[in-house]
């Protein structure tokens, strides 16, 4: 196992324009998104507004619409878009040979 990155599975396990989660014991889940263009992003699965599960939202362009009150959150930065203000922590992601790797330090922070 790589010391800095956690291998969570194949890219195609995440539906395009959709999301899957990584369960973190004792912390918030991490939502891993895949856009229509195949880009993969990860955020804490928690809207900055009322803590809605972003993994359950509709992914469009580079953003996800929170299922609770339709806040749009940028997948790249975690920032709320438009008039809304707030930010969800991002988790660095990289793809290696079709596998999705997420940053171990960020996951540990989520678990803490």
């Amino acid at each position: 196992m790589n010391a800095d990155w956690l291998d969570i599975g194949w890219v195609d396990q995440i539906p395009a324009r959709g999301s899957r989660t990584v369960q973190v014991a004792g912390g918030d889940d991490i939502a891993v998104f895949r856009t229509a263009e195949g880009k993969v992003f990860a955020l804490l699965d928690r809207c900055p507004h009322k803590h809605g599960r972003l993994s359950q939202g509709i992914v469009h362009g580079g953003a996800v619409a929170c299922p609770l009150h339709n806040w749009r959150i940028s997948l790249a930065t975690g920032e709320a878009l438009g008039e809304d203000k707030g930010c969800t922590p991002t988790v660095p992601v990289k793809i290696d040979g079709g596998r999705v790797l997420i940053c171990r330090a960020s996951v540990l922070k989520a678990a803490a």
Binding site: M1, I8, R20, G26
Partner: peptide, 14 residues
């Protein structure tokens, strides 16, 4: 089923 199950689970004990 993939809508319901997490993609992976993690505990700090790995």
């Amino acid at each position: 089923a993939e809508h319901h199950a997490p993609m992976a689970r993690f505990t700090p004990q790995e």
